[in-house]
């Protein structure tokens, strides 16, 4: 029964947005504006909940002495350090909080994705095989776009940038449009099912 109430609330919240979108009723515009501010606050608490759940799960690993629990200990210490620095000590631009963010978090987050450049290059060499027509089309488009998107390509042959742009703005555009339409339909259908209570996975157990 209580699950049913949550679904009703979800439906009402969605209904207000839909009615406000199609009809000029000042009441609903006011309700919508108020609800938007509420949702921003609720979303912020949901991110807080995400952070705390990571903290609790690693705390559990330390208590239960899972293998590699000392890594979790390092994680928990760093987390508490950042939270105390950020909320209670100094959030300002030249405090320790921003220093740690600038010199520890930023470089690692960038480097993790830079790693992928190595994997992309080794994949291009070892895995990118011209097995059939499909792989050939993939191969041709990839090479032409790559060569056209850099200055040296233009020096080799002035037509490369035009070909690369043509591939992106005609054949690739048509296929991307079909994918966009498909994805949009998926989201609309999921939104509809959620508001009508058919899609209930967000309710959890």
């Amino acid at each position: 029964m209580l699950r049913f109430t949550a679904i009703i609330i979800c439906g009402i919240a969605g209904l207000i947005i839909l009615v406000e979108f199609f009809f000029r009723i000042p009441l609903f515009t006011k309700l919508q504006n108020g609800m938007m501010d509420w949702v921003i606050i609720l979303l912020s608490f949901s991110y807080l909940m995400g952070g705390i759940s990571i903290f609790l799960s690693h705390l559990q690993r330390i208590q239960r002495k899972y293998d590699g629990w000392y890594y979790s200990l390092v994680l928990v210490v760093c987390l508490l350090l950042m939270v105390t620095l950020g909320i209670f000590v100094d959030y300002g631009p030249n405090g320790a909080f921003q220093w740690l963010f600038k010199n520890v978090q930023n470089p690692m987050q960038s480097t993790m994705f830079a790693l992928l450049a190595f994997y992309v290059s080794s994949a291009s060499y070892r895995a990118f095989r011209v097995r059939n027509l499909h792989a050939t089309l993939l191969f041709v488009a990839a090479v032409l776009v790559m060569i056209g998107k850099v200055p040296i390509g233009e020096i080799l042959w002035s037509k490369f940038p035009e070909i690369s742009q043509w591939i992106l703005s005609v054949p690739s555009l048509a296929a991307q449009r079909a994918l966009t339409i498909g994805a949009a339909l998926g989201l609309i259908a999921t939104g509809l099912k959620t508001l009508l209570g058919i899609e209930r996975s967000w309710l959890g157990k």
Binding site: S44, L48, L75, M82, G86, I87, Y91, F101, V104
Partner: peptide, 20 residues
């Protein structure tokens, strides 16, 4: 693990200062 600890702590502090 240092990265996950620092970034999670950072996100919690930022949520506090930007919304809560």
């Amino acid at each position: 693990h240092i990265f996950i600890g620092i970034s999670t702590g950072y996100y919690i502090a930022v949520q506090w200062h930007s919304v809560v």
